[in-house]
C-alpha cells in the first residue's frame, strides 16, 4: 500500500466508521468489544487488497457478515447454546414502546448469528433478497426461509422476555 492508498483508506475509515461500527454492533448482538474486533479484522483484510477493491464499503460489510457468521459457527457454538432458557412469562397489557424495544434487543441478541444477520440485512440495511443471498452465499429461497424462521424465533423470544405488568411497576 503506497502513501496515496493509505490516505484513501484513512479517509474511508474516518467517513464510514460510524456506519460500520453500528452494523458490527448489531451483528455481534450488542457487544462493543466484539464489534470493534469485527470491524478491525475486516478493515485489515481490506487493507491487503485496497487497490483492487471497487466498492470498499460493500467489501468490508460482506467480510463482516462472513467473519461473524463463521466465527460464531466455530468458536462461539458453546456460547450460542449455553444461554439459559428464559422463564415462561405472560405478556403485560401495557408494555411501553421503550420496553418493547429493550425486549426486542434482548431477543435479537439471543438469535444465532446467521438469523440475526438476515434480519439486520433486511431491516437495517434495507437490502433486497437477491442482494442478501449474494452476500450470504445462498439462494433467495434460503434467505426467505431463514428470515421467516428468524422472525418466528424473535416473536417467541420476545413473548418469553416481555415483563409482566407486576415486574414493570416493581
Amino acid at each position: 500500500m503506497d502513501a496515496a492508498d493509505e490516505r484513501g483508506f484513512r479517509e474511508f475509515v474516518s467517513a464510514r466508521s460510524p456506519a460500520l461500527m453500528g452494523l458490527a454492533y448489531l451483528l455481534t448482538g450488542g457487544d462493543q468489544h466484539a464489534a470493534e474486533d469485527l470491524v478491525q479484522t475486516s478493515l485489515a483484510k481490506a487493507v491487503t487488497r485496497w487497490a483492487r477493491i471497487d466498492d470498499p464499503e460493500a467489501y468490508v460489510k460482506r467480510t463482516m457478515y462472513h467473519q461473524q457468521v463463521s466465527t460464531w459457527r466455530l468458536a462461539w457454538r458453546r456460547h450460542e447454546t449455553s444461554v439459559a432458557e428464559p422463564p415462561e412469562r405472560v405478556a403485560g397489557d401495557h408494555t411501553s414502546r421503550i420496553d418493547l424495544r429493550l425486549t426486542l434487543r434482548q431477543a435479537l441478541s439471543r438469535l444465532t448469528a446467521r438469523q440475526r444477520a438476515v434480519l439486520v440485512l433486511r431491516y437495517f440495511e434495507d437490502l433486497p433478497e437477491d442482494e442478501i443471498a449474494r452476500i450470504m452465499g445462498c439462494s433467495v429461497g434460503t434467505v426467505r426461509s431463514t428470515a421467516h424462521r428468524s422472525l418466528a424465533r424473535l416473536r417467541t423470544l420476545a413473548r418469553e422476555l416481555t415483563p409482566t405488568q407486576e415486574e414493570l411497576t416493581r
Binding site: V13, Y25, R101
Partner: peptide, 18 residues
C-alpha cells in the same frame, strides 16, 4: 435496530488498528 446500532461507540483509531 436503528436505536440499538446507535449505542455503538466509534473508536477514533480504527484505521491505525487495521
Amino acid at each position: 435496530l436503528r436505536d440499538w446500532s446507535e449505542q455503538a461507540r466509534v473508536p477514533a483509531d480504527l484505521a491505525d488498528r487495521a
